[in-house]
């Protein structure tokens, strides 16, 4: 639906990819671990291998949680925009089709948060 306005109403997006100095936004949430109140927003180079995301970026952000040490990426599953999605660890973000502002949810079976409370 169009904005009701006095004049033509058309403005560029504030967050198009060209504004991020070569990076792209990627959001990652860890299901059943609400100790992290919201998914994280990352600005990453599209050339980053997915393995680096899992081995370096995510541990830095999620590592405070006592269950993070038990995360097994071989057993973990992912959702992209709510749909099952299978990453290839050796490929880069761009190579496996992750676009600017895509959202991933990490699901780690068996890990249910602090005292099983999904925290």
């Amino acid at each position: 639906m169009a904005v009701q306005a006095l004049k033509d109403y058309n403005f560029p997006s504030a967050d198009s990819q060209d504004k991020f100095h070569g990076g792209q936004l990627l959001y990652v949430g860890w299901d059943d671990h609400l100790m992290f109140c919201a998914p994280f927003a990352f600005c990453l180079p599209p050339s980053m291998p997915f393995s680096e995301l899992c081995e370096k970026v995510l541990p830095n952000s999620f590592g405070y949680h006592p269950e993070w040490a038990k995360v097994d990426f071989k057993a973990a599953t992912w959702l992209k925009s709510g749909q099952p999605w299978q990453p290839d660890m050796s490929k880069t973000l761009a190579e496996q089709g992750l676009k600017h502002k895509d959202i991933l949810r990490l699901k780690t079976p068996g890990l249910k948060g602090l005292a099983g409370s999904s925290s």
Binding site: G29, F40, A41, Y64
Partner: peptide, 10 residues
């Protein structure tokens, strides 16, 4: 003490 080190999605 817990301080998150990564920005949240809005």
């Amino acid at each position: 003490r817990f301080y998150s080190n990564t920005l949240p999605m809005l």
